[in-house]
């Protein structure tokens, strides 16, 4: 009886595989991905986990961020109350927001450590120069993510840390004034700033990071991991 069932399951699995294989040539597509060799030291050395850790944090941030966006209201009158609501009333809201917070900090730390590893192992050298450049843009994107997310709860820390941040950005010669104006949307941090930071945090930066991550992984895929022994 059990054997019979297993046979049915196998054939169903095979049917699905065949259905997909007929349409997408899985037989040609999958083996290079599945059997793609990774250098032995890459598998055994835990320092090679940092990039993957950052990517896992990114995935967790996407999921928890979507959840938070369901309850968060990006206006100065409502923002603080909505975050308070997430923290006290929404089921598991406090846990989800806290995971978002910790995943964000871990991601930035992991990206920095990943960069330090690449530097000291010389993995940025020919032919991987451009992937290093993409990596630096990813570091910029990730820190800007953190910076824009800091304002959203609209508490004292949010407001005053953003004041310091936009003040620093505004002091950069020539372009600083424009950067500050684009970010703040006026003379003082207020409703305009909040809408902009929200748009940056949930629309502009996600689009940027997905593009950059796509390029980053594509280049690793084409060139392979730098397998220094």
């Amino acid at each position: 009886m059990r054997e019979q069932r297993e046979v049915i399951i196998m054939t169903l699995y095979e049917k699905i595989y065949k259905w997909l294989d007929d349409r997408f040539k899985l037989g040609e597509l999958l083996p290079p991905i599945v059997k793609h060799p990774a250098p032995v030291n890459v598998v055994s050395n835990p320092l090679y986990c940092l990039g993957g850790t950052a990517f896992l944090c990114f995935l967790i941030l996407v999921v928890t961020g979507m959840f938070l966006a369901f309850y968060y209201k990006p206006t100065p009158d409502e923002a603080y109350k909505s975050v308070q609501n997430i923290m006290t009333a929404v089921p598991l809201g406090s846990l989800i927001r806290s995971i978002h917070h910790w995943a964000a900090n871990t991601m930035i730390a992991a990206v920095m450590l990943h960069m330090i590893r690449i530097y000291f192992m010389g993995a940025y050298k020919k032919p991987r120069e451009l992937n290093w450049v993409v990596g630096i843009f990813l570091l910029l994107t990730v820190t800007t993510f953190g910076f824009s997310g800091y304002l959203l709860p609209w508490d004292q820390l949010a407001l005053w840390a953003t004041k310091i941040g936009t003040g620093i950005a505004g002091s950069i010669p020539i372009i600083g004034g424009y950067i500050s104006l684009i970010l703040v949307g006026g003379n003082d941090i207020g409703a305009e700033t909040m809408t902009r930071f929200f748009a940056i945090h949930v629309l502009i930066l996600p689009a940027a990071i997905i593009t950059l991550l796509g390029l980053h992984f594509l280049m690793v895929r084409i060139q392979g991991i730098s397998g220094r022994l």
Partner: peptide, 11 residues
Amino acid sequence: YPAGLLQPADP
């Protein structure tokens, strides 16, 4: 260590 929330923003 849950994410913190201080007093509401006060300019």
